[in-house]
Simulated assay, not measured.
Amino acid sequence: MASPGSDGDLRYANLDERKRKRMISNRESARRSRAKKQNRLDELLGEISNLQNDNNTIMKKIDGATHMFVGAASQNNVLRAQLTELTDRLHSLNSVLHIAQEVSGLTMDIPEIPDMLLEPWKLPYPIQPITASTNNINMF
Score class of each variant (00 low, 15 high):
D63N: 13
L93H: 04
M68K: 09
L83A: 13
G64A: 07
Q101T: 07
L79D: 11
E85W: 02
I99E: 12
A73M: 05
Q101W: 01
A72Y: 14
Q75S: 13
H67Y: 14
R80L: 10
L97G: 06
R89N: 13
L86W: 14
D88I: 02
A73L: 14
A73D: 12
A73Q: 12
L86S: 06
F69Q: 11
N77G: 15
R89C: 05
L90E: 11
E102I: 02
V78L: 07
A65N: 10
E102V: 02
T87P: 01
G71S: 07
T87V: 14
T84F: 09
V70E: 06
V96G: 00
T84V: 08
G64W: 11
M68G: 02
H91F: 08
L90Y: 08
N77H: 05
N77V: 07
A100G: 01
V78G: 00
A72V: 15
L97R: 05
T84H: 13
L93N: 09
R80C: 02
S74I: 08
H91S: 04
R80M: 12
S74N: 14
V78E: 04
V78W: 05
S92P: 10
V70R: 04
A100Q: 12
T87W: 06
V96H: 01
L83P: 00
G64I: 02
L79P: 01
N77M: 01
A73H: 10
M68F: 13
Q101Y: 05
V70Y: 01
A81F: 13
D63M: 09
A73P: 03
I99G: 03
L97T: 01
T84N: 13
H91Q: 15
M68N: 15
T87M: 01
A65L: 15
T87G: 00
G64D: 03
A100E: 12
S95Y: 03
R89L: 04
S74R: 11
L83N: 14
V78N: 04
R80S: 01
L97H: 04
L86C: 04
T87D: 03
D63W: 01
Q101G: 02
A100L: 07
D88S: 03
M68Q: 12
G71H: 03
T66W: 11
V78I: 10
L97N: 01
M68L: 06
V70G: 00
G64K: 10
Q82A: 06
E102W: 00
L79V: 08
R89H: 06
N77W: 07
L86Q: 15
G64Q: 08
L90F: 09
T66S: 05
A100M: 08
L79F: 12
Q101H: 00
Q75D: 12
F69C: 05
D63H: 04
N76Y: 13
D88F: 04
N76W: 12
A65T: 15
N77S: 13
V96F: 00
A81V: 05
L79I: 11
F69R: 08
Q82L: 14
S95D: 09
Q82R: 14
L90A: 06
V78R: 08
E102H: 01
L86M: 15
M68T: 07
T84D: 07
H98W: 02
S74M: 07
E85G: 13
V78Y: 06
A100C: 09
S92K: 04
L90G: 00
V96K: 04
V70C: 03
M68I: 07
N94A: 09
T84L: 02
I99T: 15
R80H: 03
D88T: 07
R89T: 12
G71F: 05
T84E: 14
D63S: 11
Q82V: 05
R89Q: 15
L90C: 06
